[in-house]
């Protein structure tokens, strides 16, 4: 009978203690929750909960400091890598990460992102790319795909007048300070496992003082894409992945 299975010795999966019990404010099906959870699981597995400092961005994930059960600092819009630089330089033995969306990291914070990576700051940057400004109502972001509709590009993004979507991960991978750059997704169990492995690797690299680790997670935005969560995941596979292919972009030399 199934009832007798529910006891601690049979437990295979439960929410990690590195996340608080607060209910996430994200929309149903949003990849932010999954990304938060795998990052928290990595912190838990490496047993670095008391040595980790996170920097929260502005955007949908502005309240990330409520959900991670580690020390957190809020940064001004886009300035998370700069704040993380300061924290890491004062506490070089701590594990420092930033958690940023595409509007924060690839638009207003482009300068901070690129220069932190170029200086090779020894931090982990987790970048959630859903190709839209989520919190403010679905405006066009630098990462919005060509032809993709948003509230400020209602006829689809026209590259002639609005420019091309920005592949920021490829861009920072060119910089000598970047040690590890990868692009993952969190919509399917296999992808979640891969993304978690990538984050774990990136967190472990911080011990060796080698440079910036940059993990992009291509995610969905069901509310602003105006789809159900499952539809948005399918749309993401069909449309986002051809332009933002998953996989490692820069791996450390052996």
């Amino acid at each position: 009978m199934s009832e007798n299975l529910v006891n601690p010795e049979n437990l295979v999966y439960k929410k990690t203690d590195a996340m608080t019990d607060r209910v996430l404010h994200y929309c149903p099906g949003c990849g932010h929750g999954t990304a938060h959870r795998i990052l928290a699981e990595v912190i838990d597995e490496l047993q670095i909960q008391d040595q980790t400092i996170g920097v929260a961005p502005v955007g949908c994930s502005v309240l990330a400091y409520y959900y991670f059960n580690v020390d957190m600092q809020e940064a001004a819009h886009g300035r998370a890598p700069a704040v993380a630089t300061g924290i890491k330089r004062v506490f070089p033995e701590k594990y420092v990460f930033t958690y940023q969306g595409d509007g924060d990291l690839a638009a207003i914070g482009t300068a901070e992102t690129i220069h932190a990576c170029n200086r090779g700051e020894n931090i982990l940057v987790v970048f959630i790319n859903n190709g839209i400004y989520g919190m403010t109502g679905g405006q066009m972001a630098p990462t919005t795909l060509e032809g993709m509709k948003s509230s400020t590009s209602p006829f689809g993004r026209d590259v002639k007048s609005m420019g091309s979507p920005l592949k920021i991960t490829e861009l920072v991978a060119q910089l000598p300070g970047t040690y590890f750059a990868t692009r993952q997704a969190v919509h399917k169990p296999a992808n979640v496992r891969k993304a978690k492995r990538a984050i774990k690797k990136a967190m472990e690299y911080q011990k060796h003082n080698k440079g910036t680790c940059f993990v992009e997670i291509v995610s969905n935005c069901p509310s602003n894409w105006k789809m159900t969560p499952v539809q948005s995941n399918e749309w993401m596979e069909e449309n986002m992945f051809p332009f933002y292919p998953l996989g490692d972009i820069k791996v450390p030399e052996k």
Binding site: N10, K15, T16, M19, L24, Y26, P28, H32, G33, V192
Partner: peptide, 12 residues
Amino acid sequence: IVCPDAVITVYR
């Protein structure tokens, strides 16, 4: 593993 809100606990 895919639950964004971490509401599922699994036993085996």
